[in-house]
Amino acid sequence: LQAFIKTLTGKTFTVEMEPSDTIENLKAKIQDKEGIPPDQQRLIFAGKQLEDGRTLSDYNIQKESTLHLVL
């Protein structure tokens, strides 16, 4: 599935991932794409901060969901 990552500066980019991917995997993909170390990334979806060990499906993240990236 493709999801949108929106930063506080208003920049939006897309990442490809599977519902079974962990938040940790997602942070690694963001690092590959944007060069931001995972330990500096905080991802917010539906008002909740996402925990590394959980999966996208745990948070009911669907295709074309928008996640907010806070540094």
Rank of each mutant, 00 (worst) to 15 (best):
L1C: 05
A3R: 02
A3F: 15
A3L: 15
F4C: 10
F4M: 11
F4R: 13
F4H: 13
K6M: 11
K6S: 10
T7M: 15
K11D: 08
K11S: 08
K11N: 08
T12M: 11
F13N: 00
F13I: 11
T14K: 08
T14C: 07
T14R: 07
E16Q: 10
M17R: 00
E18H: 14
P19I: 11
P19F: 12
S20R: 08
T22N: 04
T22S: 08
T22C: 03
T22P: 03
I23L: 05
I23K: 01
I23E: 01
E24W: 13
E24G: 14
E24V: 07
E24P: 02
N25I: 14
L26H: 01
K27S: 01
K27P: 00
K27Y: 02
K29E: 03
K29Q: 07
I30Y: 00
Q31T: 09
Q31K: 09
D32S: 11
K33A: 11
K33F: 09
K33E: 07
E34N: 09
E34P: 00
G35I: 01
G35Y: 02
G35P: 02
I36Q: 02
I36K: 02
I36W: 14
P37F: 04
P38T: 14
P38A: 15
D39V: 09
Q41V: 07
Q41I: 12
Q41H: 03
R42N: 11
R42W: 09
L43Q: 00
F45S: 04
F45M: 10
A46M: 14
A46E: 15
A46D: 14
A46H: 14
G47K: 03
G47Y: 04
G47A: 03
Q49K: 08
Q49M: 14
L50S: 01
L50M: 10
L50I: 04
D52H: 05
D52R: 03
G53M: 08
G53K: 11
R54K: 14
S57P: 03
Y59K: 02
Y59W: 02
Y59F: 04
I61V: 11
I61Y: 07
Q62W: 09
E64R: 07
E64Q: 10
T66M: 08
H68A: 06
H68D: 08
L69K: 00
V70Q: 09
V70S: 07
L71C: 07
